[in-house]
Simulated assay, not measured.
Amino acid sequence: MRLTIDKIAELDGKTCFICGRYLLNNTRRDLAYAEVHTGRPVLLRPERYYLFACPNCGKIAHKRCWYEVADKKVKRSFFRTKGWKIVCPSCGFEISGLRPNRLDWRHGYQIPGHPDSELMELYTSDVLAYKAGALFGKVGQAIDGLFKVVGLSSVTDPERNAIAAAAARVGKTLSDIAAKVFKLDIPPERRAEITALKCQNCGAPLPLPPPGEKAVVCEHCGTAHLLP
């Protein structure tokens, strides 16, 4: 079921209980494929991904996480596989009984007994539209409304170097950084007043950068924040 913007907003800030990522964040690996029996795998158009809640405990995870973590082989012996079944990693509830094989993700995998038509369906375009709208509602909520938005392409070389260093601290590169950069527009002497930061894009808490460093990058959404 395709989620409306209002329903998407209810998921904002919530995380996948399996992988820990925000439910509104996705990667190419999360995107759903059409069910095919011959030929090359085909991504669904428009692009979308799914969330599934355990029928017993209600915890929500990306469908890809259910596929990779919860749908496990049941072995008859060391060399032979008896079949596959899905068990909730949180409460141990058996979501699907034993079945002899499992469809590959890129061939249109669906959770047995829970077809995609019953899952929470998120179109990537809808999620981006929601984030774009929410973005401007969140700008300036931290540090007395003194964040302003600048383009990554407009930052100076020293600022770009600072962003690259901040990205490396969270395992990212400049190519992972979002186009919008948030710049804290306060005098340098006021930096000592900062005791906590949160991402101005997704709302996740940000680590305070080491002394002398002038940027911090959100590890969840890749948004850079420049400090004086």
Rank of each mutant, 00 (worst) to 15 (best):
T81Q: 05
Q141M: 05
L51Y: 05
D104F: 04
R99V: 02
K14A: 13
P228S: 06
P210Q: 11
K73I: 13
N25I: 05
G137H: 14
S154A: 14
V217H: 02
K59H: 02
A9M: 02
W84A: 06
A224H: 08
Y50F: 14
K63N: 10
M1R: 02
P228A: 00
C16H: 09
N161Q: 12
A129R: 08
R102A: 03
P55V: 05
K82F: 14
T38E: 09
G20V: 07
Q110D: 09
R80S: 05
K82T: 05
C88H: 07
R191V: 07
N25Y: 14
R160I: 08
E121Q: 13
G92S: 11
R169C: 06
L31D: 08
E219S: 09
Y130W: 08
T4V: 04
H220D: 15
N56K: 11
A204Q: 13
C221T: 10
L135F: 09
G133K: 04
W105G: 06
L98N: 02
E47L: 12
G92Q: 13
D71L: 12
L44N: 12
L119F: 00
L197G: 02
Y49I: 03
I8E: 09
A166G: 07
D30Y: 09
G20T: 14
S96F: 06
P207G: 07
D157H: 06
P41T: 11
P210H: 01
R40A: 14
G58V: 15
A162C: 08
R106G: 00
V216R: 04
A164T: 13
A9K: 14
G13Q: 12
T124A: 01
V216G: 00
R28W: 02
Y123E: 04
W66D: 15
T124I: 15
F78N: 10
R102F: 01
D185V: 13
I60Q: 11
I194F: 03
Y109H: 13
Q110F: 00
A224S: 11
K73A: 15
P115D: 03
A164I: 08
